[in-house]
Design a binder for these strands. Sequence first.
DNA 1: GACTGTTTAATCCACG
DNA 2: CGTGGATTAAACAGTC
Length: 298
Amino acid sequence: MPRPGRNTYSDQKPPYSYISLTAMAIQSCPEKMLPLSDIYKFIMERFPYYRENTQRWQNSLRHNLSFNDCFIKIPRRPDQPGKGSFWALHPSCGDMFENGSFLRRRKRFKVSGAHAADALAPSKTHDAAHYLHAQAKLRLSALHAAAHLPQMAGYMTHVPPPSGFKHPFAIESIIARDYKVPGLPPPLPGPLPSWSHVYDPTTPVSMATSDYSAYGVPLKALCQGGQTLPAVPVPIKATPGSVPALPGLSAHLPFLAHSPQSLSPTAPHSGLGHSPSTPQDALSSTASSALQPVVAVH
DNA sequence: GACTGTTTAATCCACG
DNA sequence: CGTGGATTAAACAGTC
């Protein structure tokens, strides 16, 4: 019982589908891919509701991972032992929730018909993994750069996202929306829906995964890659017809798609052995504070 | 054996 | 009311 005060909503089901929750978890980590166990952790730490009946919802979650094309499985490398694969968002699944409801998607994401046959081909995950790898590299190099460039860090901290692409799955995108979901009563007065009390940006994100990348390349090594681009939200939204090339990144500054770390003040700060000592960590909290206005204002 | 991943099926619900 | 998406349950196989 995480808080002295009564947590009115801790036992209420968050208004997110499992797809949303999973996507949040994946989006919350710099590499944009997580093993199943870390997805579990993410959800349980942020949504007290899911600390119970774990068998039920975890089964559902696994079902969703397998059933929905918007999630792709990225195998571990042989030199990266562990259980299960990494899970990532399909690069083209970014617009599923544009109707504003995170309990119900606009439509089910399916791999495009032309490539449907390829969907199961090894190249699918390979390409996606390659894409994610590139993304992670860009982000992490940017994190690294920003950590050593105060002005950049400041910029990233204080400048709101321009017209603001936010990945629809990014927590800040989800949380920031006012829930004008048809049929649902308006949220409590204030910027956030009634359950929003469970949001707490101070809880460390699951950085347990931050030391690996899907290809066994240490993330810190990725930071040395010579990339100079700042961390930016890389639109995952599909460009018609294909996996989007990494778009004009500098134009989309400076929003770290790095998401707020916790949606629950009741979330224990334990379990992941987080210590804010790495550039990633530093930036992650910076990003969180940068996110605050987004979350709070709208 | 526990965990992970896939698949099928039933049910509920929102939307047109 | 039909359709489609979400949830839940369950069975099963593979992996660690």
